[in-house]
Structure formats: C-alpha cells, structure tokens
C-alpha cells in the first residue's frame, strides 16, 4: 500500500470505511474515555510551530504489514503470523489475549477487545457477513481487508487469469476521496503501488527499526515560487 501524504487531507473517510467493512465495534463513550476505542486505521495529526506559524500534518496509519513484524515472533500461539503472501495475519480464534504483540508493535496498530462488542439492535444488521466479529479477550487489527484480497483472487482464479493491478481495493483505499491511497502487489514491479513505492518522495514509517513495513508513505511536497511559474 502506498499513501500519498501530499494528497491526504485527514478527512477520515478511510477510518469510517474500515469500520463498516470490518465489523469494528464502537466501544461507546466510557470505554473511549479509557483509551479503548478501536480504529484499525487512524489519521495521526501533528502540529508544528506556534501561532500564527502553525503547520498541520496528517498521516493515516493502518497496520504496516511489516516484512519483519515484531508482533509475530512474540505471539505464543501463532495467532499473529506471517502469511505466504507476506501479510501479517491474525487468527482470532487462536488468540488467548496476552497483548504481547500489541506491546511489540511499534506502530500501535493492534486493538484489543476489552469487552464483548455490542451492537444495539438492529445495528447488528450492518455487519459484513464476510468478516467475523471478535469477542472479548481477542486482539484485532487491520488485515489489508484480506476478505477482499481473497475474493479478488478467487474471482481471478475462476476466470483463469491473474489478478489485475488495481482490481483489489481494501475498503479504505476504495473510499479515499483524494485518491491518496494505492493498493497493489509489491512483488510485481510494474504495479502502480510498486511504481509509487520507488518514488523519490517514498519513505517508510519508523524504517530505522528494521520492521520492513509494506506501507510506503509519499512525503508532502512543498511549493517553491519559481518551480511552477
């Protein structure tokens, strides 16, 4: 996945899209006050400077699907594991809730079900049948919308072809009003995501930790008077 910070406006369409797609529970006011709100993707906002010279920066952060994911080796039950496709998988029914993985994740992208989720009826009808709901004591996180990836692969296999670039879109990518996010196969050098990942604006978050994140951020551009004249 590539996220272009020059396009991203911090609108959080991606946040709500992820909630809708992935049956993420709303924890309510009291639990939110206890810092237990769950947003598999969040838009970090940073201010720099003081009035009136204030700069604002937005940065959407989903699970970085690390190539060397610190959350994986520490999990005693293989609930957090590396898939053949190179994603960081999370098997909910294997998780016993040690929360070790969440401590190890440098990006704080793992979320824990402190209680059983509640959907006031009939809000339960909104649940996406393609995605399981998670019960108390279980860790969860962004899956890169694995259900969509699988569906795309099955579809392509049924049609006896390869998955086309851009055909599979996670919910956040699909929704993004500025088209700041691009999803694709990094192992295919021709994919749009690979192409952007080679951009000279490309950076990776906390790259120095050696986690080999699979999310590439394209840094914000700046405006120079003579450049565009």
């Amino acid at each position: 996945m590539v996220i272009d910070l020059d396009r991203c406006t911090g609108c959080e369409a991606c946040v709500v899209a992820c909630h809708a797609e992935n049956n993420i529970a709303t924890v309510g006011e009291d639990q939110a006050a206890r810092a237990r709100a769950m947003h598999w993707i969040r838009v970090e906002r940073y201010y720099e400077g003081e009035f009136p010279n204030v700069k604002t920066k937005f940065m959407p952060v989903p699970c970085q699907q690390c190539g060397a994911a610190p959350c994986e080796p520490v999990c005693p039950t293989f609930a957090s594991y590396h898939t053949i496709e190179g994603l960081n998988g999370q098997v909910y029914n294997r998780c016993i809730g040690t929360r070790y993985c969440a401590n190890a994740c440098p990006y704080n992208t793992r979320f824990f079900n402190f209680y059983n989720p509640v959907w006031d009826k009939p809000l339960d009808l909104q649940l996406n049948p393609d995605v399981s709901v998670r019960s108390e004591g279980i860790m969860e996180k962004c899956t890169f919308c694995v259900q969509r990836i699988k569906a795309g692969e099955v579809q392509a296999a049924a049609e006896k072809r390869l998955v086309k670039d851009g055909e599979i879109q996670p919910a956040c990518v699909q929704s993004c009003p500025t088209q700041a996010m691009v999803f694709g196969d990094l192992s295919d050098p021709e994919s749009e995501a690979s192409r952007l990942a080679r951009s000279n604006r490309a950076t990776r978050l906390l790259d120095e930790l050696g986690t080999f994140p699979k999310v590439t951020y394209l840094q914000r551009g700046s405006w120079h008077d003579n450049e565009n004249a």
């Binding site: 639990q31 979320f111 402190f114 209680y115 108390e136």
Partner: peptide, 15 residues
C-alpha cells in the same frame, strides 16, 4: 466473567 475491561489497561498500555 466481564472481560479485561475491568482493569485499567488500555491502548497503548496493554500491560
């Protein structure tokens, strides 16, 4: 019975 929510744990202080 109720869940680990009865503790003061949260994100990111999981321990």
């Amino acid at each position: 019975y109720a869940g680990l929510g009865v503790t003061g744990l949260n994100r990111p202080v999981f321990w």
